[in-house]
Nucleic acid binder design. Structure first.
Lengths: 248, 248
DNA sequence: GAATCATCATGATCCAGATCATGTTCGGGC
DNA sequence: GCCCGAACATGATCTGGATCATGATGATTC
């Protein structure tokens, strides 16, 4: 089942049996990629999109010095470059962070789906808009939060996304990212990420070691990062909800 | 013609005559809004989307103190909350910056279009993904550019978008934003925006006064903001192209 | 089991942009 | 023609995070 986690626990878009079957049938191939491998580069014409089955992948832009700004990370269940179907080329690079497995869906299949099944097509559209909603939360993070808030917000978001995918219990999850990755996500230096992680650890909000994140106080962490999971459109998000607390 | 500027000059999505007629027919109403009015709030269920005919509008998130981070601005021709069709509710607020005119399109019409005309539906999808591509460029801006670079990048982007819409000659355009608006867009304080604008003026890169932006040296401005218009998918973008120059 | 490389850790110094304060300019209302 | 508020302008000071430097830890390879 390639589509098991796709749009799982998202409001208003549970896949019907027949839709799931149709989507499964659209997969032409399954591929494995090593860690830190580029999958697609900005500007290349693309003819297929990929559903992430296992691993963590990233999308990023780089500046003139080659420093990266990650614009998205993807977890299992994400259709990571579905936007290449309408756009035909991408405006950014796509790469693995950890070793990953992807299911390939040719654009011709998506074309067929959009003619045959408008309702399923709308769910695919929805999936790309969920990514856009996450972009907006990242904009808020970079524009309005300080370093500690950014890391706290990111950890809460990742917890929530993995929870929706069935890969977090709401407090504890595997996440094989380095402090340098967090820096590229949060627009900080690795040095500063290191100091922030220590602070979060010392305050008992969150411990991140050996590729395992353990949130000690979700409510405090969410308050620190001004995190509210609404933008993720998660169904049954009770374990993620926190009382709103004043900032700091 | 409400749709005159919609997707104008974008690669691979020029509207066919019949598609344009269909979209025009989907408009149920035209509304005028005063400056600085909220159009929609996060979380409200929506049943229509709006095509911006005239004026500048914004989408924003606010933090616990009520400080705004703009996540998008919209210019004439933009379908500003089309993403509310698949998502049903929004994750952010929408408001006018200047007095604006919008054409209202009920979601029921978009539903009908996606069943009748998959090709037009794909173009609507494309329009929402263009917004997502702009979000990504904004992430790069906030994560990797300094204050001067952010303002330079924003001015280049706005020039390019207005150029595509036929509202800039590629160097000069009307833009009724305040320095406080620029601050909320670029994650800066108004005080600092003021200093940056003076610097750009003194260096001859760009003058912004009396709601008119005049770019003195597009190539230098683009270099300063590391701006490359590729992510806007503009067709015939020659007047916007600049030789790539090393940063600074 | 020595060498190598990625990752994590931590101290010292510096600076871009925030913050605080104080004008000035200009257009609209009465 | 004066009042008033929004927008623009500019100086003085402070600070969060960058930068530079150095070392510890731990996994992998030969």
């Amino acid at each position: 089942m390639f589509t098991e986690r796709f749009l799982r626990n998202r409001r208003g878009v549970s896949l019907e049996k027949a839709e799931r079957v149709r989507l499964e049938a659209a997969v032409s191939e399954v591929r494995s990629l090593g860690a830190r491998k580029t999958m697609a580069r900005a500007g290349e014409p693309l003819h297929e999109s990929n559903l992430l089955i296992d691993g963590i992948m990233s999308r990023y832009l780089d500046d003139r010095q080659g420093l990266r700004q990650l614009v998205a990370i993807h977890v299992p269940g994400d259709f990571l470059d579905l936007h290449s179907f309408p756009l035909k080329t991408l405006d950014h690079d796509v790469a693995t962070l950890t070793a990953s497995t992807i299911a390939v869906v040719p654009h011709s299949e998506i074309d067929a789906i959009s003619a045959e099944r408008p309702a399923l097509a709308r769910k695919l559209w929805y999936a790309t808009l969920l990514d856009a909603a996450i972009h907006r939360a990242w904009l808020f993070r970079l524009g309005r939060l300080d370093a500690t808030g950014r890391i706290a917000h990111f950890l809460c978001e990742t917890n929530a996304r993995l929870f929706a995918a069935g890969l977090s219990d709401g407090r504890r999850f595997a996440l094989a990212l380095t402090q340098a990755d967090l820096a590229e996500i949060c627009g900080l230096t690795t040095v500063h990420v290191n100091r922030v992680m220590r602070q979060l650890r010392e305050e008992g909000l969150c411990v991140f070691r050996a590729s395992l994140v353990e949130i000690g106080d979700l409510e405090a962490l969410a308050a620190r990062g001004q995190f509210d999971p609404g933008y993720l459109y998660i169904e049954n998000d009770e374990p993620l909800r926190t009382r709103k607390r004043p900032f700091r």
